[in-house]
């Protein structure tokens, strides 16, 4: 990629020539790919719950981002009180699952037999309630949460770069969750019921499964995954009200690309979105710098990069209207 290489050099313009050996460029590229993967894995944690809830209960949950926020707030608060990130992490799972179960019983349960429109409005209302409620409880200022001591530092990459240990750990957690979900759904009794629920809702009722409990459990599971994502990302970002909304939109993009209801689709979609977004931000300004002045290229490149995943999504849906791995016809 000599042309691109030159483009990157002209955006990061005043590097000494010897710094631009192919090796360094490769290291940067690998690092950015890992960054894309990490973003994707984080999106997968959000999207898995979202797609599971849709697949089993047929529900669009706009408030999923609020559960992410609750996870981050719980982790930050408990970590600040106990001094341990890990206790905070457990608290985030518990808090998000708990709030998820309460919401399911109090509100969501009444929405399963409604059309998507009512679901959109009700969960939109939940966003308002949960965001403002969180501000009521935790105040208006962002909270502090740092990565645990155990995971600080970086590991060397082939080619001379290095990569942050914590981000590698997030990738690991994401892969573990993906494997865990696969085993849960294919090997356990709960998974069997979930699969049954996806294909025929009345049938599992007739088989004597308590659908109400099953739904609450699935919703709480999805919520816990969102809470986990929030806590993990909270250590990297700002823990504040409204942090769930940008992620929510991206998670929706992910499940739509992957095919709604499909965990595998969510994983593939998440990695596509993560990598495309990261590489777009990294490469687009550089590519444009080949054809226009660098200052213009950075602005226009950034503008195009922010639209890129939506373009990709529109393209995928234009050719596969039910996503890449449509679970149901």
């Amino acid at each position: 990629m000599p042309g691109l290489h030159a483009g990157i050099r002209s955006v990061i313009h005043v590097l000494p020539n010897e710094a631009w050996t192919g090796l360094l460029f490769t290291a940067l590229l690998i690092e950015q790919l890992l960054n894309g993967l990490q973003l994707g894995v984080m999106l997968f944690l959000m999207a898995a719950g979202l797609t599971l809830i849709f697949g089993v209960m047929g529900l669009i949950n706009l408030a999923h981002g609020s559960l992410y926020m609750i996870g981050a707030f719980a982790c930050a608060t408990v970590a600040a009180a106990t001094g341990s990130f890990w206790i905070g992490l457990i608290a985030s799972l518990a808090a998000a699952a708990g709030v998820g179960a309460i919401i399911e019983v109090a509100v969501i349960r009444r929405l399963y037999d409604r059309d998507h429109l009512d679901q959109v409005l009700a969960t939109f209302a939940l966003i308002l309630i949960l965001s403002e409620g969180a501000r009521w409880l935790f105040g208006s200022f962002p909270l502090y949460l740092d990565i645990p001591l155990l995971l600080q530092g970086a590991v060397p990459l082939p080619g001379g770069g290095q990569y942050q240990l914590y981000r590698l750990a997030i990738i690991g957690v994401g892969i573990a969750v993906a494997v865990g979900l696969y085993l849960l759904i294919s090997r356990t009794r709960l998974g069997m019921r979930i699969r049954a629920g996806e294909s025929d809702r009345e049938m599992i009722g007739a088989l004597g499964v308590d659908i109400g409990t099953l739904y609450t459990v699935v919703f709480a599971l999805g919520a816990a995954l969102a809470g986990l994502a929030g806590a993990l990302v909270g250590a990297l970002q700002s823990v504040q009200v409204g942090m769930g909304e940008p992620v929510l939109i991206l998670a929706f993009v992910v499940i739509v690309i992957g095919g709604i209801g499909s965990i595998k689709g969510a994983l593939v979609g998440a990695v596509i979105v993560g990598v495309v977004d990261t590489m777009g931000r990294f490469l687009l300004p550089s590519l444009l710098a080949l054809t226009m002045p660098a200052s213009q290229a950075t602005t226009i490149g950034a503008a195009l990069a922010s639209m890129l995943i939506y373009v990709v999504m529109a393209l995928i849906l234009a050719f596969r209207p039910s996503g890449l791995f449509a679970a149901q016809a």
Partner: peptide, 12 residues
């Protein structure tokens, strides 16, 4: 050494 414009609301 470089000049970058990031996305509005970007978190990573």
């Amino acid at each position: 050494a470089g000049e970058i414009y990031t996305q509005v609301g970007q978190t990573d």
